[in-house]
Write a protein that binds this DNA or RNA. Structure first.
Length: 364
DNA sequence: TACTCGTGGCC
DNA sequence: TGGCCAAGAGT
């Protein structure tokens, strides 16, 4: 007997698990089929994957695993070593919390990750998603794992009209209703893989989807329009000046940023304030007003553009040659220009260094 | 609750 | 080219 059209069809977890068994991807942090996952690797990968693509996180994961093969070795390391290895991956509070979390696992749990969501949630940098993911994937506990993929899949399955982010609690409830008790780790990874490879944001491959039948967004003809969203605010543009101070021996002035806030704890090329009102076409003397040292400044050709999550930045770069005996001002230090790669230098400052080095080598 | 917090790839 | 997007957490 045919089912009435208005009767919702429940998505069948077994269909998804069968799809997962056929299409399971090999990822650097994923244990072989049947093998038990290492909680340390699961945790490390989940932290790195927060708001970060698999492609970007992969090389970092392998480098971390080689340098810090277990949680104890990571806990023993100086924070700066961790920041250096994390440089370029972004969201640097993750690196600071990663280090704090490793130390907490050693100090409070004898070097073994706890296996319950509640205990995991108490660890630095571990929120609702990550606690559930570790519980499910590393310990096969029936946790409801909800990330952006799962939210998108649920929004489409049930054609949720409420816009994000207000719809989050509703999507979580739906995810909990659909989730099976069996194979929690596999199911969690299956829902995320589905969102990452089939139920993608822009052009979902519904023809290949194991849940195409119960999906109400697909039935409606425009699955790519879910989840609904409210309009985002425009990204403001800020301006600033970076100061490249180079000695004849190739040493460059750098300094550490405050532990809290943007790029917290990372190394920087000295810059002045970043503000919307700064005019980069102002006279040289005005641009040099916040310089870290007195000197004969010149403006380098070109500018550095960089986009952060909540504002865009354009930097003018001023340079000056430092006398051999110049002492670094308080809070600053000299770093070898050709060893900046190994510093905990965020991308925006690597762009500054690239611009300055190009100009200096042209001159030389 | 709403804002802060990076980066690189994609179309 | 520029907005959008990625396995969110902290405050």
């Amino acid at each position: 007997m045919p089912q009435a059209a208005e009767t919702p069809v429940r998505p069948d977890p077994d269909l998804l698990l069968a799809w997962y068994d056929r299409h399971r991807r090999t990822l650097p942090w994923r244990a072989p089929v049947g093998a038990r996952a290492d909680p340390y690797r699961v945790w490390l990968s989940e932290i790195m994957l927060q708001q970060t693509t698999v492609k970007a996180a992969g090389p970092y994961f392998l480098r971390f695993l080689e340098r810090f093969p277990d949680v104890a070795s990571l806990a023993r390391a100086p924070l700066d070593d961790v920041l250096k290895l994390w440089a370029g991956l972004g969201y640097y509070s993750r690196a600071r919390n990663l280090h704090a979390c490793a130390q907490a696992v050693v100090a409070l749990h004898g070097g073994r990750f706890p296996d319950t969501e509640a205990e995991l949630l108490d660890l630095p940098g571990v929120g609702p998603y990550t606690a559930a993911a570790i519980a499910a994937i590393a310990f096969d506990r029936p946790a409801v794992v909800v990330d952006g993929n799962v939210e998108r899949v649920m929004a489409r399955l049930f054609a949720v009209e409420e816009p994000m982010p207000a719809a989050k609690p509703r999507l979580r409830r739906l995810a909990a209703e659909v989730a099976p008790v069996r194979r929690p780790g596999d199911y969690a990874q299956a829902t995320m893989d589905l969102g990452a490879t089939i139920c993608t944001p822009k052009s979902p491959a519904c023809a290949l989807c194991p849940w195409d039948d119960p999906c109400r967004a697909r039935a409606g003809g425009a699955p790519q329009t879910y989840p609904r969203k409210t309009a985002k605010a425009a990204r403001p543009q800020r301006f600033g000046v970076a100061y490249w101070v180079e000695r004849a021996d190739g040493a460059v002035l750098v300094r550490a940023r405050p532990l809290k806030g943007l790029l917290g704890g990372m190394t920087e090329i000295p810059t002045g304030a970043w503000d919307e009102a700064i005019d980069l076409s102002a006279p040289l003397a005005a641009l040099a007003r916040e310089a870290p040292v007195a000197g004969r400044w010149r403006r380098l050709p070109g500018e550095v553009e960089h986009v952060f999550s909540h504002f865009a930045l354009r930097l003018a770069v001023l340079a000056c040659d430092a006398p051999a005996g110049l002492k670094a001002p308080p809070g600053a230090r000299w770093a070898a220009r050709d060893a900046l790669d190994g510093e905990a230098l965020p991308s925006v400052f690597r762009k500054v260094a690239a611009l300055a080095r190009a100009e200096f080598s042209r001159k030389a």
